[in-house]
């Protein structure tokens, strides 16, 4: 299913200029993905995407949304596997509805579900995927071993995939998405089922793909902390519509509120700060004080020093990506999410 037409360019980048017409990576600034009034209605009447207009610029992008918000539908349309009902879509300058094979030759896709053949070795499987995207036999084998090494599978790659752990399977899925040296990676919940160490390794890997190889990455995830950590920008969709698209740093700007945490004596400190005329509020184990002027810092520090308390942390409160979802119309989504399954 991976198209063959786009592959000479892919080979050219890696095997020393044998092919002259090497297409360059998408010029920075031009959107990688652009949709305009994209709508998808399924035959059963469900509207998965409604009038979605967005532009994704190069970098690592997080795609978040409730279950049933339309993420999977969007990915299928971007890969040219599903025709949109209305609207326009453009991936790397191509129209996936008409040039599906060309799009898939330049896009790597890591699906969410377990879809690996258990009785093949990772080396065989990834080589096969490389050949499917049009690489000659030897090149496919070389690229496969290179991709598997990148994701951290060494000797294990000659063992059958059926015996792999979840973390290893996720790595194989990533390797097959990388094997044809795509310009864009679509990763659907890459950390699903991983334990903390495995998650950490996967996130570092994704970050490296973006920074070291210069490949743009779109990551679907439910874990907003994860998105905050590895992505430059974020696209949130809800009910098939664009909820928000922005750079991460714009969504995590600091607020004019100071958060003070002491290891002990929080009650004393609260009383003292209130006595200084500051508006103190309690937030779990921390105290919040509005940052009126720069001298607020000194007042707090002075109070802590006078009371001889251990100062654990002092920082400006930041906005969090999670706030996007903290006060949403939960009732309406629960009806919608069920309809989509």
């Amino acid at each position: 299913m991976w198209g063959t037409t786009g592959c000479p360019g892919v080979v050219g980048r890696h095997y020393g200029g044998r092919v002259t017409s090497t297409p360059t990576r998408a010029p920075s600034g031009a959107p990688l993905i652009a949709t305009q009034a994209l709508t998808k209605r399924y035959p059963n009447g469900v509207t998965a995407l409604a009038d979605l207009t967005l532009a994704v610029s190069p970098g690592t992008v997080g795609l978040v949304g409730a279950n049933g918000a339309g993420k999977s539908t969007l990915i299928k349309i971007l890969l040219g596997l599903l025709p949109p009902t209305a609207g326009r879509v453009n991936v790397l300058g191509l129209d996936p509805a008409l040039q599906g094979e060309d799009v898939r030759a330049r896009v790597g896709y890591m699906p969410e579900n377990d879809c690996l053949p258990p009785d093949l070795s990772a080396a065989e499987f990834v080589t096969h995927m490389a050949r499917m995207s049009g690489l000659p036999k030897t090149a496919a084998r070389e690229r496969a071993s290179e991709a598997l090494r990148h994701v951290g599978l060494y000797e294990e790659r000659y063992r059958q995939i059926g015996g792999y752990s979840t973390g290893m399977k996720q790595r194989v899925k990533l390797a097959q998405a990388l094997v044809h040296d795509p310009d864009l990676l679509l990763l659907d919940e890459p950390t699903n089922g991983l334990d903390p160490a495995g998650r950490d390794a996967m996130l570092t890997l994704i970050q490296r793909i973006g920074t070291d190889f210069g490949i743009s990455v779109v990551v679907c995830s439910h874990l907003l902390g994860e998105v905050e950590r590895i992505c430059d920008s974020l696209i949130a969709i809800d009910g098939g519509r664009l909820l928000r698209a922005d750079r991460i740093e714009n969504m995590t700007t600091s607020r004019d509120v100071l958060v003070v945490e002491v290891a002990e004596g929080i009650d004393q400190l609260e009383t003292r700060l209130a006595g200084l005329g500051l508006t103190v509020s309690r937030d779990g184990r921390a105290l919040q004080v509005p940052l009126a002027t720069e001298s607020t810092y000194d007042q707090i520090l002075g109070a802590v020093a006078e009371l001889d308390l251990p100062l654990h942390s002092l920082d400006q409160r930041r906005h969090r990506v999670a706030e996007l979802f903290a006060n949403g119309p939960a009732a309406t989504t629960s009806t919608r999410e069920g309809a989509h399954v």
Binding site: Y297, A305, L311, S313, L314, D315
Partner: peptide
């Protein structure tokens, strides 16, 4: 830390473990 900063008249804007 708070006492040292006060004595040196340095303003601590951020302390994060």
């Amino acid at each position: 830390l708070p006492k040292i900063a006060l004595a040196e008249q340095i303003r601590v804007q951020r302390l994060v473990p």
